[in-house]
Structure formats: C-alpha cells, structure tokens
C-alpha cells in the first residue's frame, strides 16, 4: 500500500531488558478506523506513545503523511496532524471545557476569535455543550473522556489516537461515545484506537491489529482476527 497515512516499520521499544514493542509493522490507510488490541501489557500504550512522539523508539521507523517522524517531539507530531487522548484522562483542570478546547484550537488558529469558533464546533460535534463552562477538573470520568476526544479533535488532526476512550463507561455512555467516534471518522479523520473491550471494537473497526508480548501476532478484519487461533490462544490460553 503506497497511500498509507501512518506507516509503522519494524518499530521497537526496549525498557532495560524488557521489549515493550518488538519489530512491530503495520500501516493505517487514510479514512480507516483501525483497532489496536491485545491483553494487558501487550505494548499497546507504548506503541501509541511512540506514534504520538511521547516515547522515543529504540529502533525502527515511523512515517506519517509521507514524512519520517521517527523520534519527533510530541508537539511536533501534534502539529503534523497526530491528535491523541490519554488513557488516564489528562484534562487542563483549572480551565473550563471551552478553554480546554480553545487552547487546543490555538494550534491552527492564532486568533482568539477563530480558536473560539473552532472550539464551539468541536463542542457541538462531541456533545460537550452542556458542560462548556464547567471547570474541567469537576467533570465526571465520562465527560472527561469526551473532553479528551474533543480536545484532540480541536487540534484538527489527520490521525486521531484514541486510548481506551470507551472502557470504564456504562453501556449507554459507551454507545454514545462510539457514535461520536463514527461521526469524527465520517468527517475525514483517520482513527487508530486502543481498546480492551472486544465487543465494542469489533463492529466499529475496519481493521484490527493484535499485539501480544510487544509483538504483532495478527492483523485483519475483525472477523478474521476473532477467528485467528493465535489470537484466541493469546487471550484464553492453549487448548488442553
């Protein structure tokens, strides 16, 4: 595939003697929703951090939008068009929701008025209207996750990295969040999402990559992956 938006090429990350990721390669085509799954400790978050620039790869190459972005600082990655959420929500607590969004929008709009307008658009899209003037620190976890998505979206990313934005939500909240993810994707934003919950990710993703012990063990459509014996083994263990 030549038109990949994100190309991960033999990416490895080692912490001392532990390989959090080892020779991981896959591509994300523009417009797709790609899921990244795997058991606890499989290296999903590390891979995310590397793509977002928050973690330097030990070896390998990252290509985004036709450019080599390996080892870029996080703010450069964000400027290039990689938006991300944090698994443990990291909102700007002393600011209101609107200020959170405006701050993110300032990356593409240097004027306050334009940034505010972008913030309001995003608030509409992410359903943040009811809490727009609340201090972000006072939000419930569900709202904070939504704000995380909104804030990443306000940076006008080409690729959005969603780190477990659906887990920990009630089923109804999760359904709404899935709808928001779909809407964002329909707006032309490519999505790479880490998720634990298989039932949520399967109907949503066009393609799924499975990590286990830091390595890619499977890749394909949700159906293919779900029936892959290696994946079943990784999650449930070997048949007796």
């Amino acid at each position: 595939m030549t038109g990949a938006l994100l190309r991960i090429d033999n990416l490895s990350c080692r912490f001392g003697g532990l390989w959090a990721n080892r020779d991981v390669s896959f591509e994300v085509e523009p417009g797709a929703i790609v899921g990244l799954i795997g058991p606890n400790g499989a290296g999903k978050s590390t891979l995310f951090s590397m793509v977002a620039g928050a973690q330097r790869p030990t070896s390998g190459r990252l290509e985004f939008d036709g450019r080599d972005v390996t080892g870029w600082a996080p703010h450069r990655a964000a400027r290039a068009g990689v938006g991300r959420t944090f698994q443990l929500m990291r909102v700007f607590g002393s600011m209101t929701v609107r200020e959170n969004l405006t701050t993110a929008a300032f990356g593409r709009h240097s004027r306050l008025r334009d940034a505010r307008r972008r913030a309001d658009e995003v608030a509409e899209l992410a359903g943040l209207g009811p809490v727009l003037d609340s201090p972000a620190a006072s939000l419930t976890a569900a709202w904070k996750k939504r704000l995380e998505m909104g804030r990443a979206l306000a940076t006008e990313p080409k690729l959005l990295l969603l780190d477990e934005v659906l887990s920990g939500l009630t089923p109804t909240e999760a359904r709404e969040a899935v709808e928001i993810v779909r809407t964002i994707n329909r707006g032309g934003v490519t999505i790479l999402m880490v998720e634990h919950v298989m039932e949520v990710i399967m109907p949503l993703c066009h393609r799924v990559v499975v990590l286990h012990y830091g390595q890619k063990i499977s890749e394909g459509t949700p159906e293919q992956v779900a029936h892959d014996p290696t994946v079943v083994e990784a999650y449930l263990g070997k048949a007796l």
Binding site: A52, A54, H75, R79, F86, L112, A154
Partner: peptide, 26 residues
C-alpha cells in the same frame, strides 16, 4: 496572558504532557 500564550502557559501548568499533545512547544 490574554491570548494564545496565556492559554498555553496555563495548559502547561495544568498538565505538561497534555499540553505537548495539543501541539504546544512546552
């Protein structure tokens, strides 16, 4: 403080990683 810079430094105070993730050169 009133414009972009003000928002940025407050974001940095609140959460440096999140600030970098929205494109702020911390």
């Amino acid at each position: 403080l009133r414009g972009r810079a003000g928002n940025y430094v407050r974001a940095i105070r609140d959460d440096q990683e999140a600030a970098a993730a929205v494109g702020i050169d911390v």
